[in-house]
Amino acid sequence: MHTKAGAFDKVNEATMAMNRLRMEGFTPKDITMMSSEPLPLDEDDEKSRSLIWLFSILGGILGGVGATLLTTLASKQMNLVTGGMPIVAPWAFGIIVFEMSALGAILAALGRMVYEARLLRRGVGAEYGSVVAQGKIVVAVDCADETRAQNAERVFASCGAEMI
């Protein structure tokens, strides 16, 4: 299996190429579009479902529960009266629970984002970096065999791509 890639100057050329590649039978999984500016995903694309918000809520709950346990258990272990306040003081501990919830939410969102965006991984695209940096849009296709590779090259040529 090898990868074919074309560089485009214009967004509509790149999208046209992607649409034609799909008509040629390439799945969205095979096609990767890279750009130096944000280009949105197709909404019907299965990749577009993100669980970042859900993870951030879960992380928030985890942080909050963790803070509740930490403050309560640690204070009970110390068991020292200060200022006539109860050992477990919800008013005061609530502040720590809030901060830890927020921190949990932020860290979980970051973690999920790194996972979903496939960061910190070796993948396709490292060789196209300099082209993307020039402001071009790169469309890379994984081709299973030689015929498919030829199809891809034909599509790229028809859309005005510069082969890389």
């Binding site: 944000p38 496939r118 196209y128 993307v132």
Partner: peptide, 8 residues
């Protein structure tokens, strides 16, 4: 890499 998925 600047893939559409990463931008999203």
């Amino acid at each position: 890499r600047g893939t559409a998925l990463q931008w999203d």
